[in-house]
Design a protein around this nucleic acid. Structure first.
Lengths: 346, 346
DNA sequence: CTGTTAGCGCATTCAG
DNA sequence: CTGAATGCGCTAACAG
């Protein structure tokens, strides 16, 4: 039933002017070219009545721009992580009148190539190359304007990166414990106490540990121990904690993420230990479960939404300039103070 | 550095043929028009060497099609729900060589209009109108080909709907309890025992209850009671269960979703009751936490991924036909048998 | 079997 | 201040 789209020609005819004039008015350049106010109003009114909207495809062909950017990630669905990043990107894009293409590569380079091509063929103005968890990636060549989201370039690249500020997060977590009065009996769940004891390829693990060690070290506090696990799943948190409990009496646990913390809660509970009465727990990520756990988990939040926003902001800023600097933008990770940390028992 | 895109004209010139010939070969219609095998090979080789790829924007302008569909939902990020729907839609789209625009309305009709326009202006071939949780929505008029995902039309519409099969899910949950031998002491958490006691506007609540009552009724089993809550949050699950426990000794709980079940676990634990020894628990959604809880929660899964897939399948099927029938496609909700259900104590 | 011609809808010199 | 003409890259009649 919907009648054919109204074109610029229709509009011009309805307003009794040439297509050029109509175009000038609609693109807002009527003013500077001193088109008569009378004519301008006539065109505007006709446009309103006919419901004229420029055909974006045509404009795209003509101008080479599409007011569209592509968001390609290795995985979108697992955990709500990507959801919030996309949401942030989406809102920032909307503020700029830009649409978002979305795609996922599943880590398959072949798929990635196809996806990038499909987007480039559609003349996207820019690309966001996102990763599910922070890591280094091989950046494809000949992508036009682009930013790396939650990822660092494996080899030198002039593409900017947007990543969570993990080492500052590590510092923050350590400070939470220090501020509560903890000085000993602090154990790590997910990584070993030494810098070498981290899951391979996880920049989050490495950087968080750096931050933790820095602050604790400065305060003259020694990390009592740690248990390294690779996948950071709840079961691993349980296992790590249970294992720890066989030999030690920890007063505080720094879990490298919330899933580990969930597991730790279980093991602690099984051992008849109270959180935070007997053992304080601080963690990372602020996964939704963090506020569902009992007691509610104090954790340093991954700023997914902000990361997404920042990505499009940087992308647009960069498109203005001639050449990117390969800057790394670190987005702060706020600590969510909840109920799992208390002063150590005396 | 990346040199200008190679156009059809470039390709034609390189191959020493006219643009038409090049076009015919590239669109694969060289065969039927009996273009000489020799010329065909020449064009193909040149295309390969030059890395020619048709400009999708131009094709779009010419053909009116864009091999792109739009996915607009009221909210994308909250919970990973939408993430999996998008993932399903994405993969089904990719199989068809189609890209996905994404947008969210946040429930704002103004925003929704703008979004739909932006997509239509880009000549999307079809639209998926998605809702975060199953509900009835007012369908905008003059959307072209479209399907409703996780939503039902408020007023009659010829748009097809894709929804989870909630009443069958209700039946399945009831059967899980029946099969385990439960015949009494079955309570509902999230809705009251009567059909009227459901949160307004939640089709999931209403339909799940219908299914539960049907199966239990057929078996001659009476629902012992229930507690209605609107938001189905963990705290509400705790409150409902604690409240219940003051007067009754339930043997089984049907929680209307996993968050409620999480809360119920807490209240049960506080009361010193064992799951599933003292009380069996069955739930809905299969939220990620369901398999992290202890004991692991038996629950009827929301098939997000399948919903997303189905949406694009139906959309494409529908685009073939002349007119939609407003059919409702119900996607099965599989039950995940885990550890929270056992035979009742004798 | 292949090349010529004509738009798709729009923005943009260039003349009036 | 406004209109006629041109081309973005491609497909599709229509001749040769």
């Amino acid at each position: 039933m919907s009648r054919r789209r109204v074109t610029l020609a229709d509009l011009a005819q309805a307003a009794g002017v040439s297509r050029t004039t109509a175009s000038l008015v609609m693109t807002g350049r009527g003013r500077e070219l001193r088109i008569s106010h009378d004519v301008e109003q006539r065109v505007l009114r006709a446009a309103d009545e006919l419901g004229y909207r420029p055909n974006a495809v045509s404009v795209g062909l003509r101008t080479g721009t599409s007011r569209t950017i592509g968001f390609v990630s290795d995985t979108v669905a697992t955990s709500r992580l990507a959801g919030d990043m996309i949401k942030g990107a989406l809102e920032a894009a909307r503020e700029r009148g830009v649409m978002l293409f979305i795609g996922e590569t599943e880590g398959d380079p072949e798929l990635e190539r196809g996806l990038l091509h499909a987007m480039q063929d559609r003349q996207v103005d820019g690309l966001i190359l996102a990763s599910m968890y922070t890591r280094t990636i091989k950046v494809p060549k000949d992508v036009g304007p682009a930013v790396l989201l939650n990822a660092l370039p494996k080899t030198a690249s002039d593409l900017p990166s947007i990543v969570p500020d993990e080492v500052e997060a590590g510092r923050a977590a350590a400070r939470v414990l220090l501020d509560a009065g903890h000085r000993d009996g602090i154990y790590l769940i997910g990584v070993g106490p030494e810098l070498g004891d981290v899951p391979p390829r996880s920049v989050a693990a490495r950087e968080r540990l750096v931050g933790i060690r820095e602050i604790l070290g400065e305060a003259g506090v020694k990390i009592a121990g740690g248990r390294m696990f690779v996948d950071w799943l709840p079961e691993e948190g349980s296992a790590a904690t249970a294992d720890l409990l066989e030999q030690h009496r920890p007063k505080a646990l720094i879990c490298l993420n919330d899933r580990l913390a969930l597991g730790a809660y279980h093991a602690l509970s099984d051992a008849g230990l109270d959180v935070p009465g007997d053992v304080s727990v601080v963690s990372f990520d602020d996964h939704p479960i963090a506020s569902w756990m009992r007691p509610k988990l104090t954790t340093v939040a991954l700023p997914h939404y902000e990361l997404g926003r920042k990505a499009v902001e940087v992308l647009f800023a960069q498109m203005g300039e001639e050449t990117g600097q390969g800057e790394i933008h670190r987005v702060p990770m706020p600590v969510r103070h909840r109920e799992s940390v208390a002063a150590p028992r005396v």
